[in-house]
Nucleic acid binder design. Structure first.
Lengths: 206, 206
DNA sequence: ACCTGAACACCGTTCAAGT
DNA sequence: ACCTGAACACCGTTCAAGT
């Protein structure tokens, strides 16, 4: 299982000295997180994956939470949430698509949920999404303050919805479970509810 | 710190044989979780707290996740989310109060957030909140299916909002952070947005 | 500068033994 | 039936040493 036939041009760089870096480690770490779950990304496991001693990682990362942050940041970047076709002028459509993408991204790696909460900060990637959202809404006529408020609401709803679809759902009684299961577009419904509220605000204001 | 003056009639039961039980352990566990964080609730730490060997716990709990579930369930029960003055007839007020209480409960122990997501199921306590919500809304004129959908949205928003207020907030740029900080009633705003959407639905329908 | 090796204080958990 | 004690395979991390 180590290396009979060369895999698929994935790990071309052999492990010579100096070929370890934050980026290479973050990539390898994300790979482990994707395939085995973020909870199984451990210093020793990552070290084995890049054929190195656990302590070698500490030359590039302060500690484990530093590594996790880097992996999460890379995860968000790769998701590329804002890079969809919808133009910023269609602010409502842009928001719906963006936060729908965010949901999909989260669902693609459920093991991130525990890390969404405290400590581990999402880096440049996540900040980008917020900033772009604010810009789009400001251009549409919202105050930046109101835009920040709305982005918060959307973010909160998407994260909560993702978490619920993954877990809370299972703690319902059988009867109510059945009711939940046949309403698939819960996210869409919620997003539109919030966005239509914003639309109404804008039309009243102008 | 062990027992010079009797504390406050909290741990009356001395550690004789047979005085260990799921309930006593769950209570002691919740106490640790409250004071030191749920992440520091460990088998060995709990064992020390009840003056027993770690393995004694396994007589009462399958494994650690079983213990965590029991502690979380007790946490929800103690929160007593639905036990407020608002009558069920005022369904909108009831919902706002209930989910506002839920938010407060979550914020009172932020270390639960990582456990909100996967695996650990909230037990009877959480199911109760959902069931009562559905009943209140059904009585107000919603179909049970639509009520389930709405409860989902509310739940998702509250959880997401709580998580964000605790963490996501910190990953904003300084500029946007300032904008966020002076809008305290983000929860209230969001709750009312969702509930007013429901009100509108009901008025159209009838 | 970059990595290794041995060691430490923790985990959850198993298994065999005591009362 | 209920609890103890020793042991195992894991953690993250420190410190001293190699190249």
């Amino acid at each position: 299982m180590t290396s009979m036939n060369p895999p698929a041009a994935v790990e071309t760089a052999k492990h010579q000295r100096g070929h370890l870096s934050r980026e290479r480690l973050a990539i390898a770490g994300l790979k482990i997180a994707r395939t085995e779950g973020l909870e199984n990304l451990t210093m020793k496991r990552l070290a084995k994956a890049v054929a190195v001693t656990p302590m070698a990682i500490y030359r590039h990362f302060e500690d484990k939470s530093d590594l996790i942050d880097a992996v999460l940041d890379r995860f968000v970047q790769e998701q590329d949430i804002c890079n969809h076709g919808v133009p910023g002028k269609d602010w409502a459509g842009w928001l719906e698509r963006t936060y729908s993408n965010m949901y999909d991204g989260l669902q693609s790696m459920p093991s991130v949920y525990p890390y969404l909460s405290s400590g581990s900060r999402f880096g440049a990637g996540a900040t980008d999404v917020v900033t772009q959202s604010l810009d789009v809404m400001e251009a549409a006529g919202f105050s930046r303050e109101r835009a920040a408020q709305a982005a918060s609401t959307l973010n909160g709803f998407v994260i909560g919805c993702a978490i619920m679809d993954n877990a809370f759902y299972q703690s319902l009684s059988a009867k109510d479970k059945a009711l939940h299961s046949n309403l698939e577009p819960r996210l869409q419904t919620g997003l539109r509810l919030i966005i239509s509220g914003l639309k109404h605000e804008l039309s009243v204001q102008s």
